[in-house]
Simulated scan of single mutants.
Amino acid sequence: MEITHVTDTVWMLRFPVGQAYAVRIPDGFALVDCGWAGYEKPILDALAGLGASGPTDLREILITHCHKDHYGSAAALAAATGARILAGAADAPVISGAQPLPDPVLADWEIPLYEANAPQVPPAPAVPVDRELSDGDTLDWGEPARILHVPGHTHGSVALHLPDSGVLFTGDTIANVGQLMPGVFNLEPARMADAFRKQAALDVETACFGHGDPLTTGAGAALRAAARTLT
């Protein structure tokens, strides 16, 4: 698994489709998303290489949204480490297995892309959500970590903002794939521009996306410039 150092405390873990982020916190590590099912061992090996003393150093897993390429390893990681699972309140029933994932609303140009990529990703085992998150909630990750509810990609999509560090984790609400753009395969496409603008208004230096390379400098300005082109 490819590991990329993003900031002093953030590393990107890249999967065949999409990516997750390891964040060093005072008592260990947290994850923002956790990739495909079956990747729990590579993830734990990666954390060990970053300095984790054992599996229990993984304290929390924030799932940005209820797509299987973002929470596939959550159940196995929680069982192996005792990490708490955090997710947006509206997506928690899907992640826990209480509700099925609704089908995305696809534009014509998205259909072949979806048909080519979606079958590659293995099913994600259900996992209980320990904390359901709402807009404005904060996590204690050594600095206040603020939750933004940014529906559109899924009903309960959340982004995470570390204001002291100037870092933003967008999940799949924003992608960096040749250009900065709203994510694809959305449940509520009409809400995606607002989700993008909400994040672009933040003062951030680094932006970490669910798909595409992070922006490590000038991310806020780049997001605002891209937001001005949205209709």
Rank of each mutant, 00 (worst) to 15 (best):
L86K: 08
A89Y: 12
D91K: 04
A92T: 12
S96P: 00
G97Q: 06
Q99T: 09
P104E: 06
P104H: 11
V105F: 03
L106C: 11
A107R: 14
W109P: 02
W109H: 14
E110Y: 06
E110P: 04
I111H: 04
I111Q: 10
E115H: 10
A116V: 06
N117H: 00
N117T: 14
Q120S: 04
Q120H: 05
V121A: 09
A124M: 10
P125K: 11
P125I: 15
A126L: 10
V129E: 11
D130A: 14
D130P: 08
D130E: 09
E132N: 11
E132F: 01
S134E: 10
D135W: 05
G136Y: 09
D137A: 12
D140A: 15
D140M: 10
W141G: 08
W141Y: 04
E143K: 09
A145V: 08
R146G: 00
R146N: 00
R146D: 02
R146A: 07
I147Q: 07
H149K: 06
P151I: 14
P151V: 13
T154Y: 02
T154R: 11
T154G: 00
G156Q: 12
G156E: 14
V158C: 15
V158Y: 04
H161S: 11
P163C: 09
P163M: 06
D164Y: 03
D164H: 12
S165L: 15
V167Q: 11
V167P: 00
L168D: 01
F169P: 01
F169H: 05
D172W: 07
D172M: 13
T173G: 13
Q179T: 13
L180H: 05
L180W: 05
G183M: 05
G183C: 11
G183T: 07
F185P: 00
F185S: 04
N186D: 03
E188T: 14
E188M: 14
A190H: 13
A193I: 03
A193G: 04
A193S: 12
F196V: 06
F196N: 06
K198N: 04
Q199W: 02
Q199G: 07
A201Y: 01
A201M: 05
A201I: 07
V204A: 06
V204F: 02
V204Y: 00
E205T: 15
E205Y: 03
T206S: 02
T206N: 06
T206K: 02
C208T: 12
F209E: 01
G210A: 07
G210Y: 01
H211T: 01
H211D: 01
H211Q: 01
G212Y: 02
D213Q: 08
D213M: 01
P214L: 03
P214C: 04
T217Y: 03
A219F: 05
A219Q: 03
G220Y: 01
G220K: 00
